[in-house]
Amino acid sequence: MAPYALSFLTFVIVPVGVALVLAFMQFDLTARDQIQYVGVRNFDDALKDAYFWQAFRATFAFVVLMVPSIVVTALAMAFGLNAMTTGRNTVRALLFLPGMFNVAVAGILWQWFYNGQFGLFNFALKHLGLPPQPWLSDRDFAMPSIVVMSLWWGLGGTSVILLAALQQIPRAILEAAVLDGAGHRALLHRITLPLLRPVLLFIVVTNTIGAFQVFGQPFLLTRGGPELATRGVVQYIYETAFNNYRMGYGAAMSWLLFAVIAVFALVQYRFLRRSAH
């Protein structure tokens, strides 16, 4: 534990500490002679900032759509892979393949798929005699489209983790249960799911954290549009800190996002923990 703790302290805790201080400063990279302590003003400003709330709504929409769909589909994929009679390794590798591509490249590809007038999807729909869809140009359509692309990109990884957990269940335990006359259902509910629970907790929590921090996919596909409907909190933070160079304000918004994620993660932890017993 010690070597990791050392690295963690140096490269995580120190920068985090700096970031915590920043949140209470007026810190503009382009005006370094006017850096000063401003108390909670940045937090105050954020709570009054309509764009911040809008960004939160966008992030929240992504989380609500993304987390349940990736957990459920990944679980299905893991069970599916586990039950396969042949070709399991091939299918696992193929599912995993999209996630190996850089998100920037994945974004280029999907932007072309989704392009409303000149893209691949609407071209295909047209040939099937169906009306074209406003994949990324409609405010209600854009976020689900981004979720689909994210699923394509991220599902393989999550499934592989769950499959590893499934296969790690010692065969002896399952065999013993079958000998005791347990059916498929009982096996699933009494043995498999309870043993899977810690890993499931890991999957749910990390995917929730990841979804709350979504940035790459909407940034590449829509730049946050239409009308900022898909500009999430992290993109807004990024623009504040690195396009407007207002590090202090960006840090304050990061801590507000942190607080929200922490509440969610805690609830999930309690819930998945308690139902284990």
Partner: peptide, 17 residues
């Protein structure tokens, strides 16, 4: 003009559409 969408015009111009 087609309904507005990011980066759409140039992609269409390249495709001769």
């Amino acid at each position: 003009v087609p309904p507005p969408e990011n980066g759409l015009g140039w992609v269409g111009y390249r495709q001769k559409k």
